[in-house]
Structure formats: structure tokens, C-alpha cells
Amino acid sequence: MNLPNSMTLSRIAVVPLLIWLLSASSPLHGHAQEWVASLLFIAASVTDGLDGYLARRRGQITTMGMLLDPLADKLLVCSAYVVLVAFDPAVVKPWIAVIVIGREFLVSGLRSIAANEGFTIDASDIGKLKTVIQIVSVVACIFDRGYTEWTFGPGSNLMGGNGPGWFMLPVHWIAVAAIYWMTVVSIISAVDYFAAFWSKVDQTAKNARAAKVLSRRGVVGPGL
């Protein structure tokens, strides 16, 4: 098995571990739970772009990789939002998880139809932006459970103190803004993907009709 596929499989393996770390039965508690889960999710998210880059760079694009890569992405994202509904219910509402998962199912279905019809739909800038916001929102919501804000400097809460520090980062409001921004961008990217899909289908249908007309003319022409 090549390196890109191994990285993809490692991303799938992270899913049950992440769920365990963010569950009530987690062996970690307090801030240790939040930091370990966040770093694990960030590391897994980094492999999302890295495995594809390495596969293209090394010429190691395989059927297995093409199948597992989108599966790993969706498992990681969907499981993260499902578990966050219980881990941070004040910010992550069930309907948000439904929208995220519904969007992933929609895109997967459209990709399958597109592949069956013999064309592909490239990832748009909106889709790439959605991926970045998803990472930020998941990490922010994990930290929101234990931190309302981060203070930096001597005596700050990141240094184990309870002083005001030099400056403050509002973790809770970043989590709220990121989760709702992510929801909006997910809806927009789903509409954008569907529009791109429909445009391809429409163009394919027009080409098929044009080819059929030309074929008929070729058959009728010699008999005239």
C-alpha cells in the first residue's frame, strides 16, 4: 500500500478515536480532553489535502484511493458534528448537523451520477472555503466546552492562571460565528455544486441531441 492511501486509512482510523475522546467515557477530562481531541482533528484534516497532493506528485493515484479519500473526508466531518451535538450542545444544534450531513450526502450522490455519466465536477473555491471553515468551527466548538475565552501573557488562563493577561481571544464567540458561517457556506456550496452538476448534465444532453441529429443527417444524406 502506498503512502497516500496509508494516510487516507489513518484518517478513517481517527474517526472512532475522536468519537471516544469527545464522549462521556473519554479517559481524558478537562482541558486535556479538548486539546488532544483538537490536535487529533487538525492532524487528520491536514492529511486530507496532503494525501491527494502526494498521490498526484508521485503518480500514485489508485482506484482504492479515489474510493477511500472522499469516504474518509465525509466520515471525519460528519462524525465530528454528530458528536459535537452532545459535546457542545449550546453551540452545535442538531439541525446544523443535519444540514452538514445532508450536504455531504447530496454531493456524494451527484458525484456518483456524474461519474456514471462520464464527467467530473471540479471542487469550487466555495467548497474549498467550506472545508477550511469546517476545520475552524470544529476546533472552536471543542475548545468552547472548556473555555469562554483565552487570555495570553503572564497569569493568563493558558498559563494556568486566572488573570486578565495581555489580551483576550473570545473563544465562545468565535465558535458561534464559525459554526453558523460554516452552515451558511455549506448551503451555498451545495447549491453551487448542484448548479455545476446541472450545467454539465444539460451540456451533455445538448451534445447527445446534436450528435443524434448529425447522425440522422449522415444516414439520410446519401439517399437524397
Rank of each mutant, 00 (worst) to 15 (best):
S156R: 12
I101A: 15
T63C: 01
T8F: 08
A175H: 03
A195E: 06
Q134G: 07
V184Q: 01
D144G: 08
R58Q: 14
K212T: 09
N5G: 02
A208I: 02
S79Y: 06
Y180S: 08
S25Q: 10
V107C: 15
P94Q: 03
G221M: 04
P170S: 06
R217M: 11
N5T: 14
D144Y: 08
G65C: 07
L17Q: 03
V220L: 10
M66A: 12
A97E: 06
A97W: 12
K74V: 04
F197Y: 13
G109F: 14
H172R: 15
S108L: 09
L75E: 03
V185Q: 14
P70D: 11
W181H: 09
D48N: 12
Y53W: 10
A208S: 08
I61V: 12
L9I: 12
S112F: 06
Y147M: 00
Y147R: 10
A115Q: 04
I142D: 12
L54D: 05
E117S: 15
G218C: 00
R145C: 07
K93W: 05
V220H: 05
P222G: 01
A55C: 03
A115D: 07
V83N: 13
I188R: 00
N157W: 13
Y193F: 13
V36L: 11
D202S: 15
K130P: 00
R11H: 06
H29F: 01
E117Q: 10
P89K: 10
W150F: 15
V77T: 14
I96H: 02
V132R: 00
L22D: 03
F152A: 14
A86P: 04
F87D: 00
I188N: 04
D48K: 07
P222I: 15
P70S: 04
R57F: 03
I179K: 04
V92P: 02
G160Q: 12
W173M: 10
L106S: 09
P27R: 11
M66R: 13
A208F: 09
S186G: 11
A190C: 02
F41I: 11
L84M: 06
P16T: 12
L50W: 02
W181N: 15
E34Q: 04
G221V: 01
D122H: 02
A24R: 09
D125F: 07
A43S: 15
A115V: 05
G153F: 05
I12H: 09
V36K: 10
V92Q: 09
P89C: 10
G165N: 08
M7E: 05
V136Y: 01
I19P: 07
V139L: 01
T8P: 05
W173E: 07
A140P: 06
A55M: 03
H31V: 14
Q60H: 03
G163K: 15
V136S: 00
S45H: 09
G118T: 09
H172D: 06
G155Y: 14
M1Y: 01
V91S: 00
A140W: 05
H172F: 12
V85Q: 12
I99G: 00
P70M: 04
W20A: 14
M64F: 11
F87C: 11
F197N: 11
V107H: 10
M159W: 13
L21S: 01
P170D: 10
V219H: 06
V91G: 14
P27S: 07
S38F: 02
G109A: 09
A55F: 01
V107G: 10
S124A: 13
T183A: 15
G221K: 04
S79K: 13
Q134L: 07
R56Q: 01
H172L: 11
P94A: 05
L28E: 02
